[in-house]
Computed example of a mutant assay.
Amino acid sequence: MPRTPPFETVRALQQALAVEGVLSVVGGSGLLVSLGLTDEAHDWDLVLPPGTVEAVERVLAAKGLGAQRAPGGHPRFATEALFTVDAGDHSIDVLVGFAIRTDDGVVTVPARAGASWRGLVMARADDWAVAYRAMGRDARAQLLEGAT
């Protein structure tokens, strides 16, 4: 049986964003678990298209979710905004305009819907294979490339 953080908060956040007209998808280890490629996720990664920062801030405030916006940038990521939501016993990373810096330039990771799983809209495996390659996490990329 796969081990994941509870679904309630990430599901409610994704649904509230959808009401605002903003598509969000779950990627990262949650995507791997949904595809049966690994058996554990410690947190959720929610990816949104660029230009949706204000909608995220409105939804987080309306839901009363404690979230920290990462100040400045991370040298490895070119993401428009990163919010870390405290969901009690786990966290939810909300990535607006997810992008990764590589030696060859910036790789953007689109927020495109794949399958549904347990009431969540999941990311597309091929998008996250590209993301993991750009991050140098080749073993995870290979798992996803085999799933597409």
Rank of each mutant, 00 (worst) to 15 (best):
T4Q: 10
P5M: 01
P5T: 02
F7V: 10
T9V: 15
V10R: 05
V10C: 05
R11H: 13
L13P: 14
Q15K: 12
Q15M: 04
A16I: 08
A16P: 07
V19F: 03
V19I: 12
E20H: 01
E20V: 01
G21L: 02
G21S: 00
L23Y: 03
S24Y: 05
V26A: 01
G27R: 08
G28F: 02
G28D: 04
G28Y: 02
L32V: 05
L32T: 13
V33Q: 12
V33A: 04
V33F: 01
S34C: 12
S34T: 14
L35C: 11
D39V: 07
W44Y: 15
D45F: 01
L46C: 00
L46V: 04
P49G: 03
G51P: 10
T52C: 09
V53W: 07
E54R: 09
A55W: 04
R58I: 02
R58C: 01
R58M: 06
R58E: 01
V59L: 04
V59G: 06
A61F: 08
A62C: 00
G64N: 08
L65I: 10
G66A: 07
A70T: 15
A70V: 14
G73H: 11
G73K: 15
P75T: 01
P75W: 05
P75N: 03
F77K: 09
A78P: 14
E80G: 13
A81Y: 08
A81L: 13
L82K: 14
F83A: 00
F83G: 05
V85F: 09
D86A: 11
G88H: 01
H90N: 13
V94Q: 07
V94D: 02
V96S: 09
V96A: 03
G97E: 09
A99N: 06
I100M: 07
R101A: 02
R101K: 14
D103A: 14
G105N: 03
V106R: 12
V106Y: 05
V107M: 05
V109N: 11
P110E: 01
P110C: 00
P110V: 00
A111I: 07
R112S: 04
A113F: 10
G114V: 09
G114T: 05
W117T: 08
G119R: 10
G119P: 15
L120N: 07
M122I: 05
D126E: 15
D127H: 08
D127N: 15
A129F: 11
A129W: 12
A131C: 11
R133D: 12
A134P: 15
A134C: 10
G136L: 10
L143M: 11
E145Y: 11
E145S: 11
A147E: 14
A147S: 15
